[in-house]
Design a protein around this nucleic acid. Structure first.
Length: 449
RNA sequence: GCGGAAGUAGCUCAACUGGUUAGAGCACUCGCCUGUCACGUGAGAGGUUGCGGGUUCAAGUCCCGUCUUCCGCGCCA
């Protein structure tokens, strides 16, 4: 008999069907045993009636996470037992027979109960199965898909940026070194240089891939491996074209989430933000004045925003313009990377900035220098050796349009969208300073093998 | 790297100013239960209180060292 997915059971009322999945919960009442089953499409309650002897024998030994094949009859529930708010709350599967496809050991904890984050991370192959985690990563998939859809429609071409980088790594201090056939190579900190090269090829490009930062930070918003959603576009007027493009793709993402993930947002008790037609935007110096006026802290001499400042500005933006988003532009050019374009009308400051969302920075964007001589001069002023970037510089030697782009931290966006306390909860298998799965964790729990 | 907090049963947590045999809920084992849906219910098993040293008649509790984790900061997305 062919497998029926749990979401389709209702249409099979009165019929005998076979479902396959996991045991979610067992409620054993002796003569009556209730079992909730889960497959990729949903959940359903099964009931073993007293006369189903063989099914009863199997049902009595089943435990959570056992994998089973169940033959049963789809029945409407007795009216007083209907649970209208639940999926399949008006039907149940009368279990006729069951086959155990795989047993599960005793669980270290009940799925879905509160556990500490280190326990959560120690047991990811199990904890990721919980309803909350599946909701988080479904939302994340919808974000990526919507990002792809929108940009493709806008004429962007997706490309795969290399993760193995030679000498021309942007920074150096915070890149991972790897042994590469007798040389030292690096893991990519960003697809930046490649996406600029690709502007020379396709004008508009994007990439969604992992990047690596060898930074010894330990916060709820940092990862050593994260997913960067990157775009780069040619023939722009200035950085505001990039800001407008980001506004539009964020709007599309939020609309897709509203259409496809309302149940997930409800489960995670979070609201889908509205993207204003024009996201509030101000220069760093204006933002610093607001901080002084509203919050009484003088940070006007600082070249950057501190995490507390970012939280304040988001609070202010929400209060003043009812926006969860705010752009802060024109950071000192001296603090930005060598390829950043200086504003001719505001010398010393960058044509670009950050996008803040619900208290954290999720994007850095800018117009880039497209003139070969200016770019080389900028490298030299930053004490970088143009020789090491000769490969990248070819793109500029051979003609590049004015262009700009952005990078968006997928896990930060996901975490803030869903009110998650730690960005690690928005990462399937987070890498941090003391964890690659369990490999770096010296006091991990002893596990039965 | 710096600062703060914490480490007690498989998990989540209690245990007062040091004082009987370190407790509870969930999970687990063995029963009872024909409408549960976090089922209920009776009993049971489960501990080197992270590790090492010290003070004390007595240490989960106080002191020193050490390891680990979480949170904050710098840096960043």
């Amino acid at each position: 008999m062919e497998r029926t997915y749990i979401k389709d059971l209702k249409a099979q009322a009165g019929q005998e069907v076979v479902i396959k999945g996991w045991v979610d919960i067992r409620r054993d009442q002796g003569k009556l045993i209730f079992l909730d089953f889960r497959d990729m499409t949903g959940k359903v309650q099964g009931v073993i009636l007293p006369n189903a002897k063989e099914a009863h024998d199997v049902g009595a030994i089943l435990r959570p996470e056992w994998v089973v094949e169940v033959k049963g009859k789809v029945n409407p529930r007795p009216p007083k037992n209907v649970q209208a708010e639940k999926m399949n709350g008006d039907i149940e599967l009368e279990i006729l027979s069951m086959k155990v496809l795989s047993k599960a050991q005793e669980l270290p904890f009940e799925l879905g109960t509160d556990i500490n984050i280190d326990t959560y991370l120690d047991y990811l192959p199990l904890t990721l199965r919980a309803e909350k985690q599946r909701a988080i990563f479904k939302v994340q998939t919808v974000i990526i898909t919507a990002f792809r859809e929108f940009l493709t429609k806008e004429g962007f071409t997706e490309f795969q940026a290399p993760k193995l980088i030679g000498e021309d790594a942007e920074g150096g201090a915070n890149s991972f070194n790897i042994e590469y056939f007798g040389h030292t190579a690096h893991l990519a900190q960003s697809p930046q240089l490649y996406k600029q090269i690709m502007v020379g090829v396709f004008e508009r490009v994007f990439a969604a891939g992992n990047v690596y930062r060898a930074e010894k930070h330990s916060t709820t918003r940092h990862l050593n491996e994260y997913t960067s959603l990157d775009i780069e576009m040619g023939f722009i007027k200035d950085h505001t074209d990039v800001m407008n493009m980001e506004t539009k793709f964020l709007d599309h993402i939020m609309k897709e989430l509203a259409a496809k993930c309302s149940a997930e947002f409800k489960l995670l008790k979070s609201e889908i933000p509205v993207v204003p037609e024009k996201i509030p935007s101000m220069k760093l110096r204006e933002a610093q004045k607001i901080i002084q006026k509203e919050y009484g802290e003088d940070c006007s001499k600082e070249p950057d925003l501190e995490p507390q400042h970012e939280r304040w500005l988001c609070e202010y933006s929400k209060k003043t313009w009812n926006s969860d988003f705010i752009f802060i532009t024109h950071f000192p050019i001296s603090k930005r990377p060598f390829y950043t374009y200086e504003d001719e009308d505001d010398l010393g400051y960058a044509k670009g900035g950050d996008l803040l969302f619900r208290g954290v920075e999720i994007t850095t964007l800018a117009q880039r220098i497209h003139d070969y001589d200016k770019l080389v001069a900028s490298m030299i002023s930053k004490k970088l050796d143009p020789e090491k970037f000769s490969y990248y510089l070819q793109a500029f030697k051979f003609g590049m349009p004015p262009h700009g782009g952005l990078g968006l931290g997928l896990e930060r966006l996901t975490a803030k969208l869903l009110n998650l306390e730690n960005v690690k909860e928005a990462t399937l298998f987070p890498r941090d300073i003391n964890r690659i799965d369990s490999l770096l964790s010296s006091n991990k729990p002893k596990q039965d093998l």
